[in-house]
Nucleic acid binder design. Structure first.
Lengths: 199, 199
DNA sequence: CGGCGTTTTGAGAGAGCTCAACATCGGTGG
DNA sequence: CCACCGATGTTGAGCTCTCTCAAAACGCCG
């Protein structure tokens, strides 16, 4: 899912540094292209009529923003650096030209978008689950490895908690309960599912 | 966002009726193409090691499923009709051929996917908000019309509540509170934002 | 008019959040 | 090697907010 996995050859990115609070682009301005966040965090926001920010997305290192802007003349929201950040701009015209002329590049791009849609829909569905325990179970079921037993944790439990939409305390407690119940076992950076009912 | 807005010309869909509980496709089977749900509901699920279903997505009338399957030889989850349903299959090979040979079709498809990613990210961000009131505010801010005052409600309030991840009771109460506080006014099928602080 | 789904309001309970304290681990520097 | 420090991990206790269950008013359509 990293940029280099789908970026057409010949499109070069331009780095840009942002101070915390600095705007990368603003609603209504002409689209320059697609950005990849190299470090730090950038938030996409729309300012509501009362002057408050409504956050549309928070992009962290490795994330891309404004994919849709490739097909729009202007940006549809503001992008503001939440922390000091470094972004890389992939210019719209070069990228579009490649996607037009290079079918396999276009296909890679479509495939990436398709996977993202799937992943986002899954995470959204996960949020429909109220119970912390069931939500964790959902996460484990969806992210279990090919062995159907091991789940590799991508980062810290704190990060995972944020991903799951839980406080880290709630996540710790839930994992402790599930461990006590013999449902899972915790290893370094991994969780193993334990199921008595082996088919 | 409807299929006809981006579907390449020359790709014809094949209808298929499903009884409630019937599988449309199964994990690991060869991908036939992309489906549009015409009526009813279809859920995408993965069966977890304990035999329970983990729902990845519930597609209703108008939704498409398995966009990513175009670029994969096999399906990555099961699709099962939750209700009696009608789906329309757009065969993978015809669709891919069009996307390959017809750049503007490819572009329309990419644009659609990009918009979907954006919309899903926004909805996901919305779910990070705990407070019903703030969540409603977020929704209103994101969906306000060009006049920056009117929000058109797509369906019933009950549907909206489900979209927002709230019970309908919670939504009714919240709207009542906001109305009482003079923050919004409710019209038939619309909500008007009221802001004292007009710039 | 009768029935069904939406809308609305009420009361109570439960689950996760908040605040707080402490443990643990890894890195840093004296 | 050890003391220190920050971030992660862990557990406790209380509270708030939404969910749940319940009941009733309303609107729409046959």
């Amino acid at each position: 899912m990293a940029v280099k996995d789908w970026l057409p050859p010949g499109v070069v990115g331009v780095e840009r540094k942002l101070k915390a609070g600095q705007a990368l682009f603003r609603l209504g301005t002409r689209t320059a292209g697609l950005y990849e966040v190299t470090s730090g965090k950038v938030r996409l926001v729309r300012v509501d009529p009362a002057g408050r920010e409504a956050v549309l997305h928070v992009a962290a290192a490795g994330d891309t923003i404004a994919e849709a802007s490739l097909f729009s003349p202007t940006y549809h929201c503001d992008a503001i650096a939440t922390t000091n950040a470094v972004v890389r701009l992939y210019p719209k015209d070069a990228l579009l030209a490649q996607l037009q002329s290079n079918p396999s590049a276009a296909q890679a791009f479509m495939a990436m978008l398709g996977r993202q849609v799937m992943s986002l829909r899954t995470r959204l569905e996960q949020r429909n689950i109220r119970s912390a325990r069931e939500r964790v179970r959902h996460y484990l079921a969806v992210n279990v490895g090919a062995d159907r037993r091991t789940v590799v944790l991508p980062g810290t439990l704190k990060d995972l908690a944020a991903d799951l939409g839980l406080t880290h305390e709630a996540l710790y407690r839930t994992l402790a309960q599930m461990t006590a119940a013999g449902e899972i076992a915790r290893l370094r950076g991994k969780i193993r599912l334990i199921h008595a009912d082996l088919a």
